[in-house]
Write a protein that binds this DNA or RNA. Structure first.
Lengths: 127, 127
DNA sequence: CCAATATATGAATATATGTTCATATATAAT
DNA sequence: ATTATATATGAACATATATTCATATATTGG
């Protein structure tokens, strides 16, 4: 059913809610659960300061695991665990070169998310 | 010390690391802890499917608390708790109108974050 | 093949988080 | 004032998460 039709023929929640039309429209337009979950999972991975630091480092240059550990001051194990999560969310990609594995950001979406996030925290900070 | 100077005079981690220059540069350019924490805190708030759903609803239209509860199927209490977190992260703003409180997205950064996040999960899904 | 190095991962533990329940606050109507 | 309605919040509990430690895998050099 189209949103336009719902706007006229919207009797699903009449007896329960204050604003049935807004509610029905919102339900019709709502994200699918699966998309909401995937989106939340992506942000959840971004939602840790050590991972944010790793991603920010990788936004400047490609780094291997031990470099990331050295810069962040984290243990190699902790870094590897976090990189695994970042890989799982397709936020970073990697290439193996001998014994070392070099990591970079997966694509420009990641850079944009970081940049917009930084804009958000900087904007209106003094309010 | 400027990044250019560090690039030449970079002896902090010589004896410890594989790629001292990259490491020193990365350290020099790294996010401040406070910024990394704020950024992570913002993404952490975005990293929950119920909150993502609420934000997505609000990206379409202003809604009051009970409407959000009705659309999401959550309890009023759970919604209020989540809205508190969203307010704390300046992701939503609100206005009181009598007994009701109407919520909207705080600014366009939030919309952009959602949009880019959705692009990210949609892009290369079949790989 | 064996030792050394770089990275990855499983298990365990300590901390953080989301929901519910009960209750508080704020506004409006009678 | 009293009652009803909309929203907010504190405490508690159950679940999720990040790090550490120990160990496994992968690659290189001898």
């Amino acid at each position: 059913m189209s949103v336009e039709l719902l706007e006229q023929n919207c009797d699903v929640c009449q007896q329960l809610c204050e604003h049935p039309q807004a509610i029905c429209l919102a339900k019709a337009e709502a994200l699918f659960d699966q998309d909401a979950n995937m989106l939340a999972d992506t942000f959840k991975i971004l939602g840790d300061s050590t991972r944010v630091k790793i991603l920010d480092m990788l936004s400047h240059r490609e780094l291997c695991v031990c470099d990331i550990a050295a810069v962040s001051g984290m243990s190699q194990s902790a870094v590897s665990h976090q990189l695994r999560l970042l890989r799982g969310a397709r936020l970073v990609k990697y290439r193996r070169e001998g014994k070392m594995v070099w990591y970079t950001l997966d694509d420009n979406h990641v850079l944009t998310l970081l940049a917009v996030g930084i804009q958000h925290i900087k904007h209106g900070q003094g309010e």
